[in-house]
Design a protein around this nucleic acid. Structure first.
Length: 210
DNA sequence: AGCACA
């Protein structure tokens, strides 16, 4: 009955024979408390007009998840195989909500779409969306340069950080975490939409691509 | 499954 621990790890290990699936998500908040400047209970309050995006005041993480899932489902972009890889939680720059910003190359310029955001001018974001993406499911031996190749084409790409961690379970192999910085949450969301749940690592070839 | 750096 201890198999439950490995319901996913097993899939990961077997993926080495097929194609590993990259899981990209928003960065997790630094802590569950202390982010609120006032120390009060208005947790999800944000200053901008939220009516246009259909968001209301959000009280906790689960609400955000639900709202985000809803909008993704409406857009029919992401398939939910794992369901857990999407974590658009608080943690961004709360002072700078991005509604309809199409600056810096994301979205449209003079009627022409740029970058990988082609076709969609903007992506509605949760008020507390982060500019950093969290990536897991990478092979333990992948290099920083390899992973950079995946994200560099996206507008607003800034930097990538690989982190080697030991498994929380004894005897299991170490794994690689990855944090990808973008100039703003909107640009991060574009990359997220494009990469979420996609299989990018061709383990047969031992490299990225097909 | 696993969330770092400033």
């Amino acid at each position: 009955m201890a198999d439950g621990y490995w319901k996913h790890g097993d899939a990961l290990r077997q993926a080495s024979a097929a194609q590993a699936s990259l899981q990209v998500s928003m960065k997790r908040p630094r802590s569950d408390h202390g982010d609120v400047s006032g120390g009060l209970e208005y947790v999800g309050y944000h200053p901008r007009e939220e009516g246009r995006m259909g968001y209301r005041v959000i009280r906790d993480t689960k609400s955000i998840d639900a709202a985000y899932e809803r909008y993704l489902r409406d857009r029919q972009i992401v398939s939910y195989s794992s369901g857990e890889s999407l974590r658009p939680v608080a943690g961004g720059m709360g002072s700078h909500p991005v509604d309809d910003m199409h600056m810096m190359g994301v979205g449209v310029m003079d009627g022409q779409s740029v970058g990988y955001g082609t076709g969609r001018s903007e992506i509605p974001l949760p008020p507390d969306a982060s500019s950093t993406l969290y990536v897991e499911g990478l092979p333990a031996n992948c290099t920083r340069r390899e992973v950079s190749h995946i994200f560099r084409p996206f507008a607003g790409f800034r930097e990538i950080r690989l982190v080697n961690k030991d498994s929380r379970f004894p005897g299991a192999d170490p794994f690689v975490l990855c944090f990808v910085d973008f100039s703003n949450p909107s640009q991060a969301a574009v990359a997220l939409d494009a990469l979420q749940g996609r299989g990018l690592w061709n383990s047969k070839a031992g490299r990225f691509g097909s």
